[in-house]
């Protein structure tokens, strides 16, 4: 039987394209912005979390910054550190508040003893 390689290639291309898109995550816009921790981190400084719309982000505490990347997955903000850790932030109040799980163990919720709450101070990024 003759095979139309063009059609076959198109179908496979679409499958792979779909898989790639599927892996890209959701729109970051609703959560882009600058957040500040509700309580002081380490007892003396607030933490600033800057989520830029291009997927880059900065964690700043006591004047020192650490870069990371972030995506939105299933309505939650996933922060990827350079060292391979993943921190998951659960948004509430329409994205104005982020509860960040600091265990790095991918808890779907936010364990009370390792949860840092942030409030948005500026939208966009």
């Amino acid at each position: 039987m003759k095979i139309n390689f063009l059609k076959l290639g198109t179908i496979l291309g679409l499958i792979i394209f779909g898989l790639v898109l599927w892996g890209c995550g959701e729109s970051r816009s609703p959560f882009a912005g600058t957040y500040r921790s509700v309580e002081t981190f380490a007892g003396k400084n607030y933490v600033e979390l800057d989520l830029k719309e291009d997927g880059k982000g900065t964690w700043t505490v006591a004047g020192k910054s650490t870069d990371f990347t972030w995506v939105v997955n299933d309505g939650k903000v996933w922060i990827y550190t350079k060292s391979g850790a993943i921190l998951i932030a659960t948004p509430t109040e329409g994205g104005k508040v982020l509860s960040l799980d600091m265990t790095g163990d991918w808890h779907p919720g936010c364990p009370p003893n390792a949860c840092t709450t942030f409030k948005r101070v500026q939208t966009g990024g």
Binding site: S83, A85, M102
Partner: peptide, 11 residues
């Protein structure tokens, strides 16, 4: 945790 040192060192 080593993987979170950047963020957790201040604490």
């Amino acid at each position: 945790p080593l993987i979170l040192t950047d963020m957790m060192y201040p604490m």
